[in-house]
């Protein structure tokens, strides 16, 4: 009974379109004409004859591996810092969340150029520090992905807030008891905080990982949808989007979507499989 709304939503709104996309992945479909069954042709083309597919996989994996741990560490660090009894923390918490409010707005493309462009803030700071011949970070193929990773870390507000909520659930008497036993700050963090909020860490890890695999909006806005310069920010879903909405190859895009689903599912399964070693639930 509790599950009823979810079941209706799942079957009515999500499952139908999902199955449609699965079926479409075995068809040639350009939106305008009726889909035509082509078997595994789309999948064959993806694996056998598409160098840009591999490029986009590479970009996406690099992004996931680098930005997810960085962002989570940052978010957790700041959350712990903001969970202390310092005065005015309410204000800081809100200020630190501000970037996340902006993170997907169209203005971000402009703002990011103000920081990482040739005359941007970042170069001005480096210039003050004595560096010369500074690159244009956004328009240099080797560096562009780095600016997007920075953008992702910069919008760490969501996991931070979830960490904060988790930290708030840790009963304070645990800390008091530990303090009585003479445990230092780090010991308390490692022995109490981490285990107690491990379900929340786990949640953030899974969700940020899935989100990173699917990164789209920021990459789309910053590169204007091209994934440039020279495909250096061609994220998987950006390429998928180009295939669907620029090239009208919806069958191909659907096949790519299901390949990504399998990749993500594999990583999520790995995370779940190892989770009973380090995630502690109140029910145990």
């Amino acid at each position: 009974m509790f599950l009823l709304p979810w079941l209706i939503g799942m079957i009515g709104i999500t499952l139908g379109p999902m199955i449609a996309s699965l079926l479409l992945s075995f068809t040639d479909y350009n939106f305008l004409r009726a889909p035509e069954w082509v078997g595994i042709d789309n999948y064959a083309r993806i694996f056998a004859d598409d160098p840009r597919f591999l490029t986009s996989l590479g970009v996406t994996f690099t992004y996931v591996v680098v930005s997810v741990p960085l962002q989570l560490a940052f978010a957790l660090g700041i959350a712990v810092l903001l969970n202390q009894g310092l005065r005015g923390l309410a204000f800081y918490r809100s200020v630190y969340y501000l970037p996340s409010l902006l993170g997907t707005s169209v203005a971000i493309a402009i703002l990011w150029r103000q920081i990482f462009g040739a005359d941007g803030l970042f170069n001005q700071l480096l210039g003050l520090a004595g560096f010369e011949d500074l690159p244009n970070w956004i328009a240099t193929p080797e560096l562009a992905l780095g600016t997007l990773i920075t953008l992702n870390v910069w919008t760490f507000g969501s996991p931070m807030v979830i960490f904060l909520a988790g930290l708030r659930q840790v009963p304070s008497e645990l800390y008091e008891a530990a303090a009585v036993d003479g445990a230092g700050r780090w010991t308390r963090f490692a022995r109490i905080t981490i285990p107690m909020i491990s379900p929340v860490i786990f949640f953030n890890l899974i969700l940020q990982m899935i989100g990173a695999f699917q990164t789209f909006t920021q990459a789309y806005i910053v590169s204007g949808g091209s994934g440039g310069p020279v495909d250096s920010t061609l994220f998987y879903t950006l390429y998928l989007y180009q295939k669907a909405f620029r090239d009208f190859d919806m069958g191909y895009a659907s096949a790519m979507a299901w390949i990504l689903l399998l990749i993500i599912a594999l990583f999520t399964w790995l995370a779940f499989a190892t989770s009973n070693r380090w995630v502690h639930y109140g029910e145990d």
Partner: peptide, 24 residues
């Protein structure tokens, strides 16, 4: 199974269900 199905809905890029949902 249902829980896995729920998680799976997170993993499929939204771009491909946009159009079927619109048709719906």
């Amino acid at each position: 199974l249902l829980f896995a199905a729920m998680l799976a809905t997170l993993m499929l890029p939204f771009q491909v269900i946009l159009v079927p949902q619109y048709i719906l």
